[in-house]
Amino acid sequence: MSQSTSTMGNEKINTSRRKFLKTAVTLAGATIGYTWLKSSQILLFAAKPKDENLPWYGLVIDIQKCIGCGNCAKACKNENDVPIEPFFFRTWVEQYTVKNDGSVNIVSPNGGINGFEQTVPTEDIFKSFFVPKMCNHCSKSPCTQVCPVGATFESPEGVVLIDEKYCIGCRYCVQACPYGCRFIHPVKKVANKCTLCYHRLKKGLEPACMETCPTGARMYGNLRDKNSDLVKFLKEHTTLVLRPHLNTGSKLYYNGLSSEVR
């Protein structure tokens, strides 16, 4: 009200006063603009450069070595307190059977924990093999990309982890993972997935699935160290990642991956 009445007055404003007003408005605008820019910078936490001294983990699964015993899936559940019900797996094993007629049969009863019974008669089989699945610890991971709050992230060691105290349970990450590696933990009510047994790595131990694999079908190692066993293996073998066209930057390399595998 006061403003509108004052404008009705017919006092003359001299040029210097108008100039002052202009300057003041410009300054105020600049200040507001600057603070707005600054506050938007606060909203975006810049990613820090990766620590060159830390290892950067990658994985190899050798399909030819896997015998489908399911020890990995079982040990994973034991080690990481995942409920035993057959709906929650940080790692599981699939059996692919390509029949002579060209059709593909895929099974994973209880994630392979109890082993596999051959369901297709041997005479109908063209080829058959086991494929252990787990988090690919992607370096351009679709799941961490979509987390709205920053409750899942790639650790400086290249391990994709979940912040259980910060996850809001929106399940967007579960939708975003093309490999089906995430689930909502029925007790903790937050997203859950393979952590590459981060707690074991930090204690100098192997991940539980690798500790209990009888044939050494799985290995992990430092991709940054050009002399590590993992890098040597990758050099000597032709390996593939799952769904390379999705450009997830998967760091889980399969040796002997057949084209039927999704």
Binding site: P86, F87, F88, F89, W92, E94, I106, V107, S108, N110, G111, K133, R171, V174, Q175, Y179, G180, C181, R182, F183, I184
Partner: peptide
Amino acid sequence: YIFPNEIDLQW
């Protein structure tokens, strides 16, 4: 065949 984590619909 569905991945074992896919039994439940998330949304």
